[in-house]
């Protein structure tokens, strides 16, 4: 669940107004595309949700945490309620597929028994069974992104946020990945996907929030066209 009310973000270093009064919310269980041209502020919204940066003003609630005021020590707990996915996968090169996913459980203190049960389950869910022993560079881009999705899912988050997850993939892999996100959403996890691939968005009839110049310019099932 995300709630943003009149959120402004000014980057001091470049004196850029990245967000200029953002208002929108994502309810539990929803699937939302966040679209907009380059520099419109999409990644800034994702970073505010994950607590990587703080708003200059306004209110942000993420899974019941007040992100404008959250104490640094509370961030790890808050982040366990999120699964985050990036365009560049961010896998650990010298760890196998299995270990990359298990790593996410291990570092939050999961028990070995639970790790051994859960990791094969999520790898199977994202369609990577049989690839456990491979290293990231022995996989295709689409497979690598599936590893990242498995890692995001493995701690059972309430919400998945993905910043241009298909940016490095061809159209067919991209579509397959979106279908995977849809499957994850059907299983009850909230999904927020940032993208600027028009065909992809139009292939699904989902809610689309379009932003431009740091403001929401449309929000609805036909949002993508309004943004054009």
């Amino acid at each position: 669940m995300v709630e943003m009310r009149n959120v402004r973000k000014i980057y001091d270093s470049s004196n850029t107004v990245a967000l200029d009064g953002i208002d929108f919310s994502v309810e539990d269980g929803e699937f939302v595309f966040l679209v907009g041209s380059s520099g419109s502020g999409k990644s800034t919204i994702i970073k505010l949700i994950t607590g990587e940066i703080r708003p200059t003003s306004g209110k942000i609630i993420v899974n019941d945490y007040d992100m404008a005021k959250i104490r640094r020590g509370k961030l790890p707990k808050m982040r366990r309620t999120l699964g985050v996915i990036f365009q560049d996968f961010r896998l650990i090169d010298n760890m196998t597929v299995y270990d990359n996913v298990a790593f996410a459980m291990r570092v939050v203190g999961a028990r070995n028994r639970d790790i051994r049960k859960r990791v094969p389950y999520v790898l199977d869910l994202v369609g990577l069974d049989g690839r456990e022993r491979r290293l990231p560079n022995e996989l295709s881009g689409g497979e690598q992104q599936r590893v990242a999705i498995a890692r995001a899912l493995v701690n059972n988050p309430r919400m998945i946020v993905a910043d241009e997850p298909t940016g490095n993939l061809d159209p067919v892999r991209s579509l397959e990945l979106m279908l995977l996100f849809e499957k994850i959403n059907d299983m009850g996890t909230t999904v927020l996907v940032v993208t600027h691939e028009k065909e992809l968005v139009n292939a699904f009839s989902k809610r689309v929030v379009a932003i431009d110049g740091g403001q929401v310019i449309s929000d609805g099932m036909d949002g993508y066209f309004a943004y054009e």
Binding site: P76, K77, R80, R90, F103, A104, V108
Partner: peptide, 17 residues
């Protein structure tokens, strides 16, 4: 640093990192 970034992203506690 990449490993650290991932640990933070998945919610490892600061003391663990």
């Amino acid at each position: 640093r990449e490993e650290i970034a991932i640990m933070k992203m998945v919610g490892a506690s600061n003391s663990f990192i």
